[in-house]
Amino acid sequence: MNSLEDIISCWKQFNWEEKLSNGLNKKVKLLEEKIECLKNTREKTSIWKLVLSDGQDVFPVVLKIYKLPLKENHMLEINMYQKAYQIYHEFMPKLYWLEPKVNGNETWMLTECLQPLRGQIKLTPLHLQRIIPTVAKFHALTYEDKFLEHSHLFDDTLPHFDSKEKVKERSKGMKTAKENLELAMKDPNLRELVAPRYKIIKKILKKGPIFFPEILESGQCLIHGDLHIHNICCENANEEGEDWKVSLIDWESAKYYPCWYDLVVLVELLIDFRSDWQQREDEIRSQCVQAYRQEMLKYGITFNEDPLNLLKKAYLQRTLEKKLSSHLEKVLNGGKSNLLKRYLEKIEVWGKELDLY
């Protein structure tokens, strides 16, 4: 694990004070007494909050340390900042400096410190209308053929929905889901919940691993992949104006996927978690989908199928290929899942609505 002394030593060794001063066009100094560790694990990444001063003002900077051996998702995020940053910079924290080969080939990255929405405001459905324009603009940059213009910015670490690896992973997920479904029927804590939908889900799983080719045909692009509220930042969230300056952090889950996968996380999973929204969920869902459709239309992007159905299909595809299995397994191992009941209910209701059974 990295230490405070390690941070200060490397700051001096690599002369980051001068490098950042050049990048910021003003002389800055590290306030050593204000260094704060946000996350520090032996095997994953280490994240620190540094505070710089120019003599008058102070401003925070995030230091993210990627440790060896670098995992694919870490290499992916590094590549997003090294190469893809040139087209995605308006959606990302400002990159101040990226230093490879620190402490035996660790990569240290210094970026702007942005404030996540979580903790700033109590999120309401109306706030999603202020986030969706940024998501649509971000998707439109690499939507379908436009991705080819920028494909040189991405390496082999970028997952593709229809790659051999993802096809294999999806098939494995189907197999595990079937096995966990059988175990759930024998488990006293799960049988009552699973039994009413057991036959339905078994029948549906036989149709996999791709349940809805339509979500592929509706268009793929680079998606964030983990678009929950912790990873959405806004500096003017408390202002009354409708235009938010939205940025996204934590790019480790970026992938070339159907665009609706991001909407599933942003909208549908938020509804699943927010019981206070569920009485109005049809209205909230429809408004968000309509807002996204209208924003995409500004970039000349249309959908051949009802976008509301595309969101539902992406949700079921994502659930059936991975999430159902993992949440069944979590409960089988003695844990709790706040989403399993919702997953099962939606598989039953939307599965029938969308002709899965």
Rank of each mutant, 00 (worst) to 15 (best):
Q278D: 07
P258S: 15
K146T: 04
K203C: 02
P60N: 05
F138A: 00
Q220W: 05
L123I: 11
K322V: 09
T176P: 07
S326M: 08
Y96A: 09
W97C: 05
K34D: 14
W251R: 04
L340P: 13
W11G: 01
Q115C: 12
D250P: 07
Q82E: 10
E353Q: 13
W251K: 09
K313F: 02
Y343V: 06
P125F: 11
F212N: 00
V264H: 12
K330V: 05
F303K: 09
P196G: 06
E33V: 06
R118V: 04
D162R: 13
L193N: 11
E179P: 00
S171N: 08
Q115R: 14
T41E: 15
L98Q: 03
E149Y: 10
V167K: 15
Q279Y: 05
G23Y: 10
V51H: 02
R191F: 14
Y88H: 04
N105L: 03
H74G: 11
V135S: 02
R293M: 05
S275N: 10
K168Q: 08
I132H: 00
G119N: 13
K202E: 15
T45M: 11
S337T: 13
K122P: 00
R170A: 14
N238K: 11
E242C: 03
Q120T: 09
Q317H: 12
E43Q: 15
H139P: 01
V194P: 01
K206C: 03
C259W: 12
I35Y: 13
L354Q: 03
K175D: 12
G300S: 06
L227P: 03
D306Y: 11
K39Y: 14
E5G: 15
I271R: 03
K64E: 04
K27H: 06
D226F: 12
C259L: 13
Y292P: 00
Y299G: 07
T107M: 01
E305Q: 09
L320D: 10
E281M: 08
F211H: 05
I200E: 07
L30S: 09
E239L: 03
T302K: 15
K164I: 05
T124W: 03
W48Y: 10
E329W: 13
K322E: 07
A291Q: 12
N180Y: 15
L183S: 12
D250E: 12
C113N: 10
K29E: 09
E252K: 06
K313P: 00
E214G: 10
H127K: 01
P69C: 14
N15P: 00
I7T: 07
E18H: 00
W16I: 00
T111L: 04
L356C: 13
P213A: 09
V61L: 05
V331T: 09
H152W: 08
L227V: 07
L117Q: 09
P196T: 06
E36D: 07
E32N: 11
R170V: 03
R318A: 13
V246D: 04
F161N: 15
T142H: 09
L266E: 02
K101C: 11
P188V: 08
G55P: 09
L153C: 08
Q86R: 07
E18N: 04
K172M: 14
V102E: 00
E268A: 06
